[in-house]
Write a protein that binds this DNA or RNA. Structure first.
Length: 556
RNA sequence: GCCCCUGUAGCUCAGCUGGAUAGAGCGAAGGACUUCUAAUCCUUAGGUCACAGGUUCGAAUCCUGUCAGGGGUGCCA
């Protein structure tokens, strides 16, 4: 259950009651908002609905607030509901209700934080989708962490989530890559040939060529360049993809599907979408190329779908058919793409294309993650293998660890450019919030271990949990479903990261002020109750960390 | 030129679907371990929310303009 939703319902009913009884005028529907006041003296939740209604009802906010207040019932939830100037209604949760929720959380177990969704959507989320031309670079880590966490959040929101990696195994970049690789292969065989115009740089290519040569030896040398590439490419793709999969799996990123761009071309799907666009009169031939007439729909410019030179499709071309396929063939209700900031220009083009195909563009959400600057203390890092500076995700993980890495990416909103301080990430100390959160979980586990060894059980009466830091901890614990819901609505994973940190702070406070396992006489009942709070807290930490794709260590 | 993102404490960032006294971590200064994990806790200091207008009962939040930083603006992906 989500407490804020319940409060909204109470207010809605009270408002309707006062309107039916004629105490308040009937006005058109307004969106009731319940928020957490900054100041704890203002209660646990508040609504500003009287202030909003004041204008349309032409009454003073305080008067409206009083009328609504009269119809509100404290019930089991609240110890206090009060009207405050200039027109807020503040709700304070009752200790009884807070206490009882501890048991509810324990009963929910690992399902706590999952939201029962009455209208779940089929959501496809596509992220990373880097060209399979080598190992993943640190620049791609942010999208990977963001995407995988967002997928977890949506799943917790009760949606059916399909995680997908679009393998760009066709197209110009791949051709250039294969030509460079072929060149290195020939070099490896000791034959002199001309360098391709655009040579993919990096030692990776050379070592890959070596691996290939060890396997295929001189066989490809007897073929034409194109035949040799055709011969080698399946092996190369598989080799690189398995590398990428390994890296992502290490980073805690799993996919349901690896979708090949090439299949769009081979199955004729691409051609059929071009035809569809043509049917909508959104296609033209110009300068030997095929163009999408975005300008007809209001776009700033038209875009090429099929190149004039080799007649091959552009990235945008295949991507349109890929997206058409997501919406029309596979019928996803919602599609989420996570792209790097360099894809910015692609967004409006894609939306126009979807619009042109008659697809509601609200079904397509594109999240752009901004650039990451890596630095070490004061020093900004330019990635360079030669200088021994980290450049691949594998390096990053082995240097700072998966959990630290994930948390740092998650604790920034995706739309802001961020600094990733490697020296801070590596520190296993209080400077690093990652360990602060995990430590809280480990501490709870330590308490439970100690309880077990002493034969103590979590079977106390929760009404004994009246200490201020106990109540405050419970308040935070019950927020989890609201946070999951909000993150899911906004498609913003960072709220979870901040929640985890706040939770840890309140847990530490509780730990400091409320000794759980007490040897004092007459305190066994309290110990048994506090052990319940410990379990409820542990469940909450574990869930939060699970959503973020981080470990919940029992020992540190 | 045009489009997008960002500008909040010394640093890194939350808060931005308008609400009550603007928050956190780090860093700085000081303090707390006969205790279930001190990877912890408690104090204190630190702000013209880039700037200027506007809308509003009310603006860090919305609108307009300016400035600064970054990104994009391929028949690359």
């Amino acid at each position: 259950m989500i407490i804020t939703e319940d409060i909204k319902k109470f207010i809605t009913i009270a408002l309707r009651d006062s309107q039916l009884s004629g105490e308040l005028p009937r006005v058109s529907f307004v969106d009731i908002r319940v928020e957490k006041p900054r100041n704890i003296e203002h209660g646990d939740f508040s609504t500003n609905i009287p202030l909003i209604l004041a204008r349309v009802m032409n009454m003073s906010p305080m008067e409206i607030a009083e009328k609504i207040h009269k119809k509100l019932d404290n019930g089991i939830f609240f110890s206090k509901i009060e009207v405050v100037n200039p027109g807020f209604i503040n709700f304070t949760l009752s200790n009884e209700w807070l206490q009882s929720s501890v048991e509810e959380i324990i009963n929910s177990g690992e399902k706590y934080g999952d939201i029962e969704n009455l209208s779940p959507k089929n959501i496809q989320i596509e992220f990373v989708s880097v060209n399979p031309t080598g190992p993943l670079h640190v620049g791609h880590a942010r999208g990977a962490v963001l995407g995988s966490t967002l997928a977890n959040i949506l799943e917790a929101n009760g949606h059916n989530v399909h995680r997908e990696y679009y393998v760009n195994d066709a197209g110009n970049q791949m051709r250039l890559f294969f030509e460079s690789l072929y060149f290195r292969y020939i070099q490896e065989a000791g034959v002199e040939i001309d360098e391709p115009d655009e040579l993919y740089a990096g030692g990776y290519l050379i070592s890959l060529a070596k691996t290939l040569y060890n396997r295929f030896s001189n066989i490809p040398l007897g073929m034409s360049k194109d035949d040799a590439i055709d011969y080698l490419s399946p092996f190369v793709l598989e080799f690189i993809l398995s590398d990428i999969k390994k890296t992502l799996s290490k980073l805690g990123v799993k996919y349901d599907e690896w979708f090949s761009e090439k299949t769009l071309l081979e199955t004729g799907y691409f051609d059929s979408v071009i035809k569809l666009l043509d049917d909508h009169q959104l296609i033209t031939q110009k300068d030997g190329a095929i163009w999408f007439l975005g300008t007809k729909l209001g776009a700033g410019e038209d875009t090429v779908l099929v190149r004039s030179g080799d007649g091959g499709p552009t990235y945008f071309g295949t991507d349109i058919s890929y997206h058409h396929q997501k919406f029309v063939k596979r019928k996803f209700d919602q599609v989420i793409d996570i792209w790097g900031a360099d894809h910015h220009a692609h967004i409006s083009r894609m939306k126009y294309a979807m619009e042109g195909l008659g697809i509601d563009t609200n079904r397509l959400k594109i999240i752009l993650n901004q650039i990451v600057h890596f630095k070490s203390g004061e020093e900004t890092l330019k990635f360079s293998k030669r200088k021994g500076v980290i450049s691949t995700i594998d390096d990053l993980i082995s240097e700072v660890g998966v959990d630290s890495c994930r948390y740092i990416f998650l604790s920034r909103s995706s739309e802001s450019q961020m600094d990733f301080d490697l020296s801070l990430a590596k520190k296993q100390s209080s400077e690093n919030p990652v360990f602060y959160i995990q430590y809280a979980h480990a501490r709870l586990c330590a308490i439970q271990r100690s309880a077990i060894s002493k034969g103590l059980r979590a079977n106390g009466d929760v009404s004994l949990l009246n200490h201020k830091s106990e109540i405050n901890l419970i308040r935070k614990i019950i927020e989890l479903p609201s946070v999951v819901a909000y993150s899911g609505e906004q498609l913003e994973p960072h709220h979870i990261a901040y929640y985890a940190f706040d939770l840890a702070r309140l847990l530490q406070k509780f730990y400091e002020e409320c000794r759980v396992i007490s040897v004092e006489k007459g305190s066994s009942e309290l110990t048994a109750s506090r052990l319940k709070l410990v379990e409820a807290s542990r469940i909450t930490f574990a869930k939060t960390l699970l959503i973020m794709g981080m470990n919940a260590p029992e020992n540190m």
